[in-house]
Design a protein around this nucleic acid. Structure first.
Length: 140
RNA sequence: GACGCUAGACAGGCGACCGCGUCCGGAUCACUCCGGCCGAGGAAAGUCCGAACACGAAAGGACGACGGUGGUGGGUAACGCCCACCGACCCCGCUGCGGGUCAGGGACAGUGCCACAGAGAACAGACCGCCUCCGCUUCGGCGGCGGCAAGGGUGAAACGGUGCGGUAAGAGCGCACCGCCCGGACGGCGACGCCCGGGGCACGGCAAACCCCACCGCGUGCAAGCGCAAGCAGCCCCUCGGAACGACCUUGGCUUCCAAGAGCGUUCCUCACCGCGGUCCGCGGGACAUGGGCGGGUCGCGUGCUAGAGGGCGUCGGCAACGGCGCCCCGAGAGAAAUGGUCGCCACGGGAUCGCCUCGGCGGUCCCCGCACAGGAUUCGGCUUACGUCUAGCGGCAGCA
RNA sequence: UGGGGAUUGGUGUAACGGUAGCACGACUGGCUCUGAACCAGUUAGUCCAAGUUCGAAUCUUGGAUCCCCAG
């Protein structure tokens, strides 16, 4: 494959690059400040429309959840769950997943919880702003 | 066989697919895409020590305060670490060139504490006792003047121990051995060991009690710091000497000039004042601000940032820790923070089951279960703690032969 | 990541190196027709492990847990 002849392509379905992550404290604060959230199992998901075509993921794992190894393992599992279910999730949302202390589950279960909670957040937004069926673009 | 001490090794492996991070090359509007290299630990941990590095006005010297360390010698960049040795204590039908443990300076510099029990607990003391003598006697003893501290008893600890002599009974009162103290010789760099002589014994324990002695240590820590960009708003308090020059102003005079005075500007000085760790020296700033107290702004990017007191092998020196020399090797540098997921096979541990069978193991099958402790964040050297195995050496113990 | 502090019954707190107290609570009994109050009694603790000491909640070392601060 010669790169020069290939035109640049958009990100494929199961990628997980920088454009799909929350990357600063300000972005995290904005999502928290929107105060729209939904819970499923050990996952508490905050959400806020970001005006773009892609949804972005942020993770918050407190020290009560476990040691460094456990916390990083959970973040990897949640990233994997986000990566593989991205097409099923609502588009154009910043999703902030807070993981609460619990007995650890398997990847499928985290995937289900993530899907359910993210859908809940999207419903909450459509209720809060009935005029805009699609995610509104505004800054608080 | 389990255990103790010591030393070393590993930290499941292979494959497929989907992914992640830095860097390099290329494409691109892009935080995207393509390709390539590399990508967690023995403890990365706790942050308990030691350093490198950085800033604090040179963070320079002396003293003090505070903190730390504590047998000796060596190793090291350094250490509270490591090695060797010494000493004390413990273990042994093996008594050794044995094994184990030790925060192991000083208790005649001073202060303090030693509860309860006990007669007496620190220049000690006499409860039960022992003994001479005197008196009484119901002949069992009782009382008294004295002598004594061996035995009993209390205690964690009772003012040298054991034995013999000695004595009314006793006592280092005398002697022997041991211990202790003092002096000396020899061996050792030294801690110390060993020997000789002297002294009848005075000198309890606790310094992980205060303390004394010796040695070491400035503070803060990569969120240190340096640079770039962006951005705002300053105010109050304390203090305010001198010299030269300059222009201006006021007053006076013998009016192109001179003298005095108030403030201003520039430069300089040091003695106020301030800073450099509490003081001093020394140094710096300096009549400005610093400083003290409020208030406001930013919180982005780059750098520090990873090759180092680095590892491996060989050789030489050394008992060893370690060091010299030669050759070879290169190992994450993120920034809401990278190693993951799924599947297959194998390995390991456990379970179930079948077979063999020397009754304790071996082999097969199943797939249900498990596969420790744990994840870089400036970097090294240690210590400590957590934890799954394997191997070797030494040691005593238990069982069997 | 770095720095600082704390830990004593269920809770809040005392204790020169010498017997672990106090208050509230809980439980039992009494008083009352019943309950409260009151009275009497009981329960239960030094975060863990080593060490120093005759003796440790206290001193030393290591560990655990929790809290706070910088950012």
């Amino acid at each position: 494959m010669s790169p020069a002849s290939e035109p640049p392509r958009p990100p494929r379905a199961e990628r997980f690059g920088r454009s799909m992550r929350l990357r600063s404290g300000a972005e995290f604060d904005a999502v928290f400040a929107a105060k729209q959230r939904s819970r499923s199992g050990p996952l508490l998901v905050f959400g806020r429309p970001n005006g773009g075509p892609l949804s972005r993921l942020g993770l918050s794992v407190g020290r009560a959840v476990g040691g460094s190894v456990d916390r990083h393992r959970l973040k990897r599992l949640l990233r994997e769950a986000f990566r593989t279910t991205r097409t099923d999730l609502p588009r154009g949302f910043d999703l902030l997943v807070v993981i609460r202390p619990h007995a650890f589950l398997r990847l499928e279960e985290y995937r289900d919880h993530l899907r359910r909670a993210a859908a809940g957040v999207a419903r909450a937004w459509s209720r809060a702003t009935p005029d805009a069926p699609s995610p509104p673009e505004r800054s608080p």
